[in-house]
Design a protein around this nucleic acid. Structure first.
Lengths: 231, 231
DNA sequence: CCAGCTGTTAAGTAGCTGTTAAGCATTTCG
DNA sequence: CGAAATGCTTAACAGCTACTTAACAGCTGG
């Protein structure tokens, strides 16, 4: 089983919280337990967690709002909900927020552990966060960590989203970056308007890149884009 | 929501199978439904699926054994179990086999859809499983991941479907690609018009490939096509 | 409170793809 | 042989997809 991963548990119930914390720690996970949404949120900003386990019903801010806030801060952070309510619409709401799972109390500890393992296992397969070193794109020098791209002595600062899109293109240079995958990575979901917005960034990046004729962003109809770079 | 992903449904119950197939297809997924484990296994070997939905209790081979066999063939393929039994040890067994989820009947269709989306979304974030090298077709160089084919210094970008058809032909080079299987793989079903459409793609590929006289797409009457390549 | 920036939505245009149709060619089989 | 079925190719087109520019609402920092 997967060990040494950081779990943020936000659960107001004292006995359940202790129980879970003990159990998960005994399984080799590093658990931080917070008893309300606000301090859970603060904790999540202090440190990156591999998974957040959120109680839905809590005094003050509920688990759904907490999840929304967490996602604003890190749009890829995995979380799952714990709840005593089994209202169908709640469940769907949880998933709509991007939850990995939605578990109703009472639940079996080992089953929870299995679900946690599934989530962590998938996260293991995901690529590393960001590349720090500047990259070469034809005659350009693209530094994603500084969010800027240089040609000779001209430096262009990119916007946050432009930077994300260009980074994705770079990570797939000279092969297709699938449209749906790209949008999914950037926004966490796909719909018509997000696709349109993505197009606008492609257009803006093309304008930036046009000064090197050997570099181009080529469309593959209905599928995606290829960042063509020489060599 | 995520569309155009290939789902393999293995479920012996007629009414549930039809219900699920209709529902998932109406959500834009490409569903192949098999009614027993053995033909499910055969189907999985014919084509890569993004997710397998397996009934646990089936006459003959059960869902667990099927999952084991699937994993031998592709150790990363995601699958989830459907079952009427809610025995705890069954559940844990399912997860131990590497299941993404374990769903007990009766279940809500929309909840199932949510879970499917979670799984497909996670798979999107994972690195490319099939990093395919360009293939040689006579004097051509066919790069399916760039969706293009080169002869000397002439580069032809293929359309999405052309690419799919040519890839299938390549995977069966110098032997028969059965017409019904090909259409089934590409469209998820077979009817008269799909067969006609398929013919058009064969015709268009022939036009592209005609510049190397050693390469041909040969018809086998009423059965399919052979991509003939030298050596 | 204003100015500037950013991301999203909108609108218009252009272009591509997959499907269907139609006419002719080829194969099969009684 | 002749009829029926199947295959081949070209053409046409509706619907979808993409590109660009513009406008705008929300936010940020001064």
């Amino acid at each position: 089983m997967i060990k040494d991963k950081k779990i943020l548990l936000v659960e107001d119930d004292l006995s359940l919280g202790m129980l879970l914390m003990d159990f998960l720690e005994s399984e080799g996970l590093q658990v931080t337990w917070r008893r309300d949404a606000l301090s859970g949120l603060q904790q999540a900003r202090k440190q990156r967690y591999d998974l957040c386990i959120l109680d839905v019903m809590m005094p003050g801010m509920d688990g759904f709002s907490l999840a929304k806030n967490l996602r604003e801060y890190d749009k890829n952070i995995p979380f799952l909900f714990l709840t005593a309510r089994l209202l169908k619409e709640d469940k769907l709401k949880g998933y709509a927020l991007g939850a990995e799972d939605y578990i109703t109390k009472p639940f079996d500890e080992n089953e929870l552990l299995c679900k946690i393992n599934v989530i962590l296992r998938r996260a293991l397969l995901a690529p590393q966060t960001t590349e720090e070193a500047p990259m070469q794109i034809g005659q350009f020098q693209f530094d994603a960590s500084r969010q800027e791209i240089c040609l000779k002595d001209r430096v262009t600062r990119l916007t946050e989203k432009e930077n994300e899109v260009l980074l994705l293109l770079c990570q797939n240079q000279n092969r297709i970056l699938r449209r749906d995958e790209a949008v999914e990575k950037i926004y966490g979901k796909y719909d018509y308007f997000l696709g349109r917005s993505f197009d606008v960034f492609i257009s803006r990046l093309r304008k930036i890149l046009k000064d090197d004729p050997e570099v181009s962003i080529e469309n593959v109809f209905k599928v995606g884009f290829i960042l063509n770079v020489p060599d």
